[in-house]
């Protein structure tokens, strides 16, 4: 649905050159919810705004649904934009228009005949659960309701792609969850591709299929959300994952001696597992099979979308060779192992 190739964006300010995006390449598949996460100033907004050309790329190519966006003439770009919905952190509803008229606006732009447009606007307000608010003005709505209007408006022209620039960042956690659920429903109902940016890993965890981590104008990691949660490979991704699930082992445990004596070593490992196969049975069978001692130091099981996802820190005590074998055993059963007290 979106193919970004070697995209760069440099802002020229009177005093300096700011590279907001440096040679970014990314592919978003049709029908997926793709999240981009990064710290403030990483370049997220710049990236998403390049996709509908609110920001003109300095270099690179962006193909949306087979169409090279960066080389469109003005008129063609306007037509293309009608098929790319966008929602915003601060909603950006017109205060001069009622809820209904706000949803009508994109339809007026697309010159949809009035009766057809009105029917469509009402349908969408129904979909986002605001049918009873069509005569209200935006200032009479709560943040969550405003974002629902924003979503209805973004869907008005039946877009193939929805861009979301921190759409839940101004909302409380509960409202955030309800808006994310709405986005998920819409994604399923219309097979709509959603590209969202956020600095909140909970948003990624809640609804994204894949995630890209952007750091300092570069994409440092891309992958399935489950995969990234289970084994983040970049420091930035790791620290984002840690904001949502605690993976860190207390420091004092890390400093415990690895060697009790020649025959008995201590290994501190982290075991991550994904999916219903779960980790616990595998670990108990490991203990039965190998003559070692295993202490669970901490553990948690969480859900990412609908898949259980767990993290355990284990202390394995036994002869070095057997420890190695038992870890190989865990790996062979599909668990991710990370040794934490490697010298």
């Amino acid at each position: 649905m979106i193919k970004i190739k070697e995209l760069s964006k440099v802002y020229l300010t009177p005093s300096q050159k700011i590279t907001a995006l440096d040679n970014v390449s990314l592919t978003v598949e049709k029908g997926e919810i793709f999240g981009i996460i990064g710290l403030s100033g990483a370049g997220k907004s710049t990236l998403i705004r390049c996709i509908n050309m609110l920001e003109k790329p300095t270099m690179g190519s962006i193909v949306v649904d087979g169409q090279e966006i960066t080389s469109l003439a003005k008129r063609e770009l306007r037509t293309a934009r009608q098929k790319i919905g966008m929602i915003f952190q601060h909603f950006n509803l017109l205060s001069s228009r009622t809820v209904f008229a706000n949803v009508m606006f994109p339809l007026e732009i697309a010159k949809v005949p009035r009766p057809e447009a009105a029917r469509r606007a009402r349908e969408l307000l129904e979909l986002v659960g605001l049918a009873d608010k069509e005569g209200a003005f935006p200032s009479q709505l709560s943040g969550g309701q405003k974002q629902r209007v924003g979503i209805a408006r973004a869907l008005a022209n039946g877009p193939k792609l929805l861009l979301s620039d921190e759409a839940t960042s101004a909302l409380d956690p509960q409202t955030t969850r309800s808006i994310l659920k709405l986005l998920r429903d819409i994604n399923r109902k219309f097979n709509l591709t959603i590209l969202l940016i956020t600095h909140d890993m909970n948003v990624i965890k809640e609804i994204c299929d894949r995630v890209a981590v952007i750091d300092n104008s570069h994409i440092v990691e891309v992958g399935e959300v489950l995969k990234v949660f289970a084994s983040p490979s970049s420091p930035t991704a790791r620290s984002f994952v840690n904001t949502v699930i605690s993976r860190e082992v207390p420091a004092e445990l890390l400093h415990r001696s690895q060697v009790q004596n020649e025959q008995t070593h201590v290994k501190l490992i982290r075991v991550s597992f994904i999916g219903p196969s779960a980790g616990a049975p595998v670990i108990s069978s490991m203990i039965r099979q190998f003559d070692i001692e295993a202490n669970i130091l901490y553990g948690n099981v969480d859900r990412i979308k609908d898949t259980p996802f767990g993290n355990l820190a284990l202390e394995l005590i036994g002869p070095p060779g057997v420890l190695q074998e038992s870890m190989d055993y865990l790996r062979s059963r599909g668990l991710e192992i990370e040794v934490l007290n490697n010298a």
């Binding site: 609110l54 770009l77 915003f88």
Partner: peptide
């Protein structure tokens, strides 16, 4: 932001 929203709608 309002202008930008309108631009994004084409």
């Amino acid at each position: 932001g309002l202008i930008e929203a309108a631009l994004s709608m084409g």
